[in-house]
Simulated assay, not measured.
Amino acid sequence: MSYPPDPNNPYGQQPPQQPGYGYPQQAPPPAGYGYPQQGQPQQPYGYPQQVPPQANYGYPQPPGTIQANNGYINIANVGTVRLATMGQRFLARLLDSLVTSVIVGIALFGGLAGVIGLADKTRQDCTGYDFASQAWSDCMDQNTQQDTNIGLAFFGLIAIVAVFGLLYEWLLVGLAGATIGKMAMGLRVVREADGQNPGVGGGFIRFIIPMVGYMVCGIGMLLVYLSPFFDNSGKLQGWQDRAAGTLVIKK
């Protein structure tokens, strides 16, 4: 049988409970939770503080970065530029072909006309000599020499034309960054690394690879010029551009 505790009996009373005794003590709420703490900047309740955006957010991009395959690329020392389309490059190549054809045609026509005219003046008529005479033999030898000179002059003109084609594409692209056709279309060939002209070495590489393709296989040059269609990087680099480290851009 139990009795209620006597309020006057100090031994029968339970000791008062201290804060946290018998119950798990709750950790104080973190600073800034629910209400701002004194001495600390106030932040919006329930939302993280946003960092202010930086100027030109997302720029500059690393060199060589294609921007969403939209035809633009970032080049060191140049900035964001537009890549030349295949249609623009084709028209520039067509203009270059017309320019070189006109120049080569004038050179060949003028050179051959001069050589043949000089040969006709010096060529002798051997019909008046006796067939068995020494004079007839000397006349024929001289005419044969003239024919040989005409042949050598013809091959010399071919060599001059080849050198012109080499210097036209090689030096103009290497030193100026563009041929006459590319200048007319507002195109320029630059190094992908720094945006400068390809230089003598880069221009020679861009020229010689199509020539090797032409000599090795009849359609090799055509494949080289069409190779930008096979570039999956979006930079429209042909095999000659990859070897030289160049890009064709629209100024």
Rank of each mutant, 00 (worst) to 15 (best):
Y129R: 05
Y129K: 12
T127S: 13
I103K: 01
C126V: 04
A135T: 09
G117K: 07
T122H: 14
V104K: 02
I116E: 04
A119H: 04
C139L: 07
G110A: 13
N143V: 01
A132P: 00
L108V: 00
N143W: 08
V102M: 12
I103L: 13
D125Q: 14
D141P: 07
L118Q: 00
G105M: 08
A113F: 05
A107D: 05
N143S: 00
G128S: 11
Y129C: 10
S137E: 10
Y129T: 07
V102E: 00
T122K: 15
A135L: 09
G110L: 14
Q134E: 12
M140L: 11
C139A: 10
F109Q: 10
A107E: 03
T122P: 13
N143R: 00
W136Q: 13
D130E: 04
T148Q: 15
G110P: 02
N149I: 15
A119K: 00
N149D: 15
D130P: 05
F109D: 11
D141A: 06
G117S: 08
F109S: 12
A113W: 08
T148S: 15
V104Y: 03
V104E: 06
D120M: 10
A132E: 00
Q124K: 15
F131G: 08
G111V: 03
I103H: 02
R123F: 13
C139Y: 06
G114P: 04
D125T: 09
D138P: 04
C126G: 05
I116Y: 09
T144P: 02
D141R: 02
Q124T: 15
G105A: 09
W136I: 14
D141G: 12
